[in-house]
Amino acid sequence: MKLIELKKVSKTYPNGVTALADISVPINKGEFVFVIGASGCGKSTFVKLLYREEKPTTGTVTIGGLNVGKIKNGKVYKLRRKLGIVFQDYEIKLLTKLTVYENVAFALECVGMTGKEIRPKVMKALERVGLKDKVRSFPNELSGGEKQRVCIARAIVNDPKILICDEPTGNLDPETSQDIMRVIENINNELGTTIIMATHDLQIVDRMKKRVLIIQKGVLTDDIPPGQYKAPKKEKGEIKKDESSKDIC
């Protein structure tokens, strides 16, 4: 069952740069999809179109039957309540003066939930990411991986249908990255949440055996089914920007 569909989507920024060109791709409910490509190839634009941070220049982006590009600015919040979003820069995205619990609860307070409704949801989300014992800690008392897990907990606390991750392991070491990936995979398996993850960490993509979309210079060049993607042999760890462009693009 199609949950997300991009049809002939192009995005050209006001400065004339074309980030995406004529992309068409359907994504089913409950799928786990990687979006890979070199830096600047259009991965971030791809995910930004999904949470309506950007509008397509041409074509349509549909989520659950709703044409995202047609949503008025004042109504975007309705779409975002159905999505969970995780970024690379967790340092910026956590509120340093709030505890772990408060950071996660913040997402629900903003949409007007009561304390009684918030508490069980927050505890459940923190349990899922393995931070139940850190509820009273402040972000500066956490490791990078733990901070990113708080961000994931906040993204899933509202039971979103789709979890959009933009380079969530970008600032983490390989071991911590694996932990984060396990958490995200569990969310996908246990909650049935559709996951769209933009990354340039090919080792992770290789190990996860999920569907992979490869974007090169704004064009979708490959749509590889689950289990068939093989990272280039040369690359054992996280690939560097210039190398990635050599091997992928």
Binding site: R81, L83, I85, A107, C110, V111, R154, N158
Partner: peptide
């Protein structure tokens, strides 16, 4: 930024 992403409406 967080408020925008978690779906707080403009008035909030």
């Amino acid at each position: 930024q967080i408020m925008r992403l978690v779906g707080a409406n403009n008035a909030t």
